[in-house]
């Protein structure tokens, strides 16, 4: 009998310890886009203000809707259904600029010399261009010897802001495109499609599949060792540019007056000469009126600080244009 009591007591104490040892960190939790995840996790850890889990923009918005997190990271504005589900009100805080790069893996072809534009990319991803020696590709790559091999298209398997940014860009460059407006889960029409989870998955897919193409954010492309495989992208007729901090920042050079009131600005397909065209900003989302917003605002404030913004270039992103940053800070103090 004694043993019973002792055992029960031990179990109770054990359970008590687990419950009682609450975390001293009153950290604000966020989840969502994997596109800025590298920056967010670094910022969270540097500041000690927050914890971030990269799981895809869609997942983050869903977590925020169900209030299972305090803030979400997203590369895409909410769809009307998402907005309705969350109660009709949402605040967007842009945090950084990033580029979606186009890694290309064709044996014997120097990818950096490969020129691509919105029309050609759109054709490859919707399935109207299926071979590397397609006329449309050859027309802008006269110096390259392109094989007659079918194109393997590597895309994201999970719902992803990167997919949204890229498909929105494709939709913008072609009036009849099925990708118009962009989607986190676009209906890719390419016949040979491989869907991988996460940006590293897409990067690995391109790296290990000959005659393949994909889209990956700059940081992940670098991390996966694809730097030498990144194609140059430009407007129809050029110039074709490599994604660099400078060419990304050029895309952000727009007059402050043209920025939408809710800060859902779209920098892609920039008209600025020498600007990399597949550029996007990414947002921290807050639902106004939530009790957790105090902590979340502290988080955003830190994200917009010069210290945080200054760390971006090293990670493969670019800082926000100063005009946009001012507007974001303003919204922070108002809301």
């Amino acid at each position: 009998m004694n043993r019973t009591i002792r055992l029960a007591a031990a179990a109770a104490v054990g359970a008590g310890c687990l419950v009682g040892a609450a975390s001293a960190l009153g950290a604000s939790t966020g989840s969502g886009a994997t596109f800025p995840a590298i920056a967010y996790t670094k910022w969270c850890q540097d500041s000690g203000l927050c914890s971030y889990t990269g799981k895809g923009s869609g997942g983050g918005i869903k977590d925020l809707t169900k209030a299972t997190v305090d803030w979400a990271g997203s590369d895409a504005p909410l769809t009307s259904e998402e907005l309705a589900a969350i109660g009709g009100k949402i605040q967007y805080f842009p945090t950084l600029l990033g580029a979606v790069t186009i890694p290309v893996n064709i044996p014997g072809v120097n990818s950096r010399k490969m020129n691509l534009n919105g029309q050609v990319l759109e054709g490859i991803f919707d399935g109207s261009i299926t071979k590397w020696n397609d006329k449309k590709i050859r027309a802008i790559n006269t110096k390259l010897k392109l094989p007659a091999n079918p194109i393997t298209v590597c895309v994201r398997a999970d719902s992803s802001g990167t997919s949204f940014v890229f498909s929105r860009y494709l939709g913008k460059t072609n009036k009849t495109s099925p990708f118009k407006g962009g989607s986190k889960t676009p209906n890719w029409g390419a016949p040979t499609l491989v869907k991988q989870p996460g940006n590293p998955g897409v990067a690995n897919c391109v790296a290990s599949t000959p005659n393949s193409i994909g889209y990956v954010d700059l940081g992940d492309a670098r991390n996966a060792g694809l730097t030498s495989k990144i194609a140059s992208v430009g407007k129809k007729g050029g110039p074709y540019v490599q994604p660099t901090a400078a060419s990304i920042m050029k895309a952000g050079q727009v007059p402050t007056s043209t920025i939408k009131k809710d800060l859902t600005v779209d920098f892609s397909a920039s008209k600025v000469r020498g600007a990399y065209p597949i550029v996007a900003t990414t947002w921290v989302l807050l639902v106004p009126g939530r009790s957790t917003n105090g902590g979340a605002r502290q988080v955003v404030k830190y994200f917009l600080s010069p210290k945080a913004q200054g760390a971006l270039t090293k990670l493969g992103f670019a800082p926000l244009p100063s005009g946009l940053r001012t507007l974001a800070n303003k919204q922070l103090s108002v809301g």
């Binding site: 609450a22 914890s51 996460g198």
Partner: peptide
């Protein structure tokens, strides 16, 4: 869900080794 910090609060998200492996290979690599 996962947690980048050391948390012992069972009502909060918490990290786990399999998930850390997942995050360090699939989410960022």
């Amino acid at each position: 869900l996962g947690n980048q910090f050391l948390s012992t609060n069972i009502t909060e998200p918490i990290a786990a080794i399999p998930q850390l492996i997942y995050n360090n290979t699939i989410i960022t690599q």
